[in-house]
């Protein structure tokens, strides 16, 4: 097992390297980061030329990649515009732990990601728990009552939930529970943000502000997850060993939880294993609408600005997380199903 894990990690290194090359090449085709630096008007031409030189954007793509990877403190640059290299660079490269500096905010990428990551994990993690709890309940309930009226209602509901556009759902929830409930004098939710500035960032404020975004994120996912659970439960409860358990006279509750669900959860684990690393990336639409300061918005804001150091940072972080969670999922399989062996 240890050998297997080591082998997987060693395989991941060239994979991440190739991912980084592809991503970097894609980034370079995105647009000019200097074009939007001025805000509503592009910066003056003279300033653009000088900034391209000072920020290293005038270097060829492969050099920019090398600087991103291993830094540029071993090479002299022309900072004065006279064509004579005079000053050493200051970047150390991602291999030496320097994730670079944003072209837009001039702040270290790690610092920017670090500020947003907890907010995203909080929102996405809570949503994930809500999704798993509700989809298990709904999926099992409708599997046990297959083709009953309740099952049909749930199935219809799941299809409606699954086909709901996120931005529309988010704005609807906001209008109903924040704007209109307030107008009608009912208890209401806040529209945007993480807390009320007049109260401050308290636990109850954050929970209160999180309700609508979590609901938005959950609806589609519950619809999808509960269908998976229903299908795999149906497959399991018609198996012989369940019948055997029943004929032994075991209580129904025990059969359901210990025998049926245990075996039905393998596909669910695969699904969660694929989803968990993506939690780091945040939710672009939901975070934007509810003004939640998370990773999805960080990504979106900097895509629009072609700010490649930040984008590379986020994408590499997610890539690493995907690789790590894939290895973890594989390990979990061996515990779940003794028939699976890696040797």
């Amino acid at each position: 097992m240890t050998r297997y894990i080591i082998r997987r990690i060693l395989q991941a290194i060239p994979l991440l390297f190739i991912i980084s090359v592809i991503l970097f090449a894609l980034m370079m085709n995105m647009g000019d980061p200097l074009a939007t630096l001025g805000g509503r008007q592009p910066p003056r031409g003279e300033d653009r030329l000088r900034l391209a030189r000072q920020l290293g954007l005038d270097q060829p793509i492969y050099m920019q990649y090398i600087f991103w990877l291993v830094g540029n403190d071993w090479m002299r640059f022309d900072t004065t515009g006279d064509g004579v290299p005079n000053t050493y660079g200051t970047r150390r490269g991602i291999l030496r732990g320097d994730w670079g500096t944003s072209l837009v905010t001039r702040r270290p990428v790690v610092e920017m990601i670090w500020q947003r990551l907890p907010n995203t994990l909080l929102l996405m993690g809570t949503a994930q728990v809500v999704i798993i709890v509700f989809s298990l309940a709904i999926g099992i309930y409708s599997a046990l009552r297959q083709y009953s009226i309740t099952d049909h209602v749930i199935t219809t509901g799941a299809f409606i939930g699954y086909s709901m556009p996120i931005f529309w759902l988010a704005l609807m929830l906001m209008y109903i529970f924040a704007v209109n409930f307030k107008k009608w004098g009912l208890p209401y939710f806040p529209t945007v943000g993480m807390y009320d500035p007049a109260v401050g960032r308290t636990f109850s404020q954050v929970v209160w502000h999180m309700a609508l975004p979590v609901a938005t994120l959950s609806v589609t996912a519950i619809a999808a997850y509960s269908r998976y659970i229903r299908a795999s439960m149906l497959e399991v409860i018609n198996q012989d060993y369940i019948r055997t358990a029943r004929s032994k006279g075991l209580p129904e509750r025990f059969i359901l939880w210990r025998h049926a669900l245990k075996n039905a959860s393998l596909p669910l684990v695969t699904l969660i294993g694929l989803d968990l690393p993506l939690l780091l990336a945040g939710a672009v639409v939901t975070e934007r609408i509810f003004a939640w300061p998370g990773m999805g918005r960080l990504f979106l804001d900097h895509v629009e600005r072609a700010d490649y150091p930040v984008l590379m940072g986020i994408l590499m972080l997610v890539s690493i997380a995907v690789v790590v969670f894939q290895i973890l999922t594989d390990i979990v399989y061996t515990y779940l199903d003794p028939r699976i062996r890696y040797s």
Partner: peptide
């Protein structure tokens, strides 16, 4: 065993949540 893995997953999510 599946319930063990499920607990692990919940555990992981819970740790992430607490961390967050």
């Amino acid at each position: 065993m599946s319930s063990k893995s499920r607990t692990r997953h919940f555990g992981l999510v819970a740790v992430l949540l607490l961390l967050a």
